[in-house]
């Protein structure tokens, strides 16, 4: 099983990279056949990524949302899935190259963090044993994926704006709005859960602070978007900056700070002991 899930994860990495290259090449050379092939490979990559999630679910007996790399694996899957839905609904393939690179980098992060332990299952710590885990983390993953898609669209849009085209602006707005709604849900559901598990709905833990910073950036984007001066390049940079903060909220906070959300090590954050005695 260990080898099998590793092969699957590596396969999705290769497929995402291949799709990205084809999207870029097809977009450059304006070859429709190449773009179609890119979409097909992206769909296969997405399905393979989903397969990895299913295997994790079977192995652990719970949804793949409880460890850091499981989250990234879900995040990558939802990013490519949302992109494919967007592509299908809007018949627009130009952001494919960027979004698939983002998905590929996420899978790469999974391999770096948990390369050899993809089949390992460790029991949940007491604080995580709650039905709130699923809704809190799933809404977060969906929000992150929406922001990834929005950032991909924004990067393409910046180049187009230089050519005087702002057609995709309202689409980016929509994707950000959906992401913002999901992020709001995730924060509130997390707060309700924290109240139950830790006895405080908000403790200014680093994860909470950075989730709030993310929320504020997108809230400002949604408010300013009503003004004409804030459409176009400025708005796009904000969407990109927002996604960089999203990545920091996940990677930076998880690996740099210790707080209630530090699940990377095996020590239960609820029951940390004072090391000062030694």
């Amino acid at each position: 099983m260990a080898i099998f899930i590793q092969i699957i994860v590596y396969a999705s990495l290769i497929l995402y990279i291949a799709a990205s290259v084809l999207y870029f090449a097809g977009y450059r050379s304006e070859k429709n056949g190449m773009l179609k092939a890119a979409s097909a490979i992206a769909i296969v990559g997405c399905i393979i990524n989903f397969l990895a999630l299913i295997i994790r679910t079977i192995l652990s007996g719970r949804l793949p949302l409880s460890s850091g790399y499981e989250f990234i694996l879900s995040f990558a899957f939802l990013t490519s899935l949302l992109y494919l839905i967007f592509e299908w609904k809007n018949k627009a393939k130009n952001a494919g190259g960027i979004v698939m690179i983002i998905a590929a980098l996420l899978i790469l992060a999974v391999i770096i963090i948990a390369g050899g332990q993809l089949d390992e299952v460790s029991p949940l710590m007491p604080a995580l044993k709650s039905p709130w885990l699923t809704v809190h983390v799933l809404t977060a993953a969906l929000a992150y994926a929406s922001f990834a898609l929005a950032a991909g669209l924004a990067i393409i849009q910046i180049r187009k704006i230089k050519q005087g085209n702002t057609a995709q602006d309202s689409k980016i707005y929509r994707v950000v709005a959906i992401g913002f709604m999901l992020l709001s849900f995730s924060i509130i559901l997390g707060a309700i859960w924290a109240e139950q598990a830790w006895g405080a709905y908000w403790t200014w833990d680093p994860k909470e602070v950075w989730a709030l910073v993310t929320w504020i950036i997108y809230a400002i984007y949604l408010h300013l978007h009503r003004r004409k001066t804030w459409r176009g390049a400025r708005a796009c940079w904000m969407v990109i900056a927002g996604f960089i903060i999203v990545l920091f909220t996940f990677f930076g906070v998880n690996f740099l700070f210790s707080g209630m959300h530090s699940y990377a090590d095996s020590i239960d954050p609820l029951f940390h002991m004072n090391e000062q005695f030694l």
Partner: peptide, 20 residues
């Protein structure tokens, strides 16, 4: 309101790093 939000975001981001 938006300025306050920016301030709160900046201050809490910096605050969480400098004065945990």
């Amino acid at each position: 309101g938006l300025c306050l939000l920016v301030l709160i975001g900046l201050v809490s981001a910096v605050g969480s790093m400098v004065f945990p």
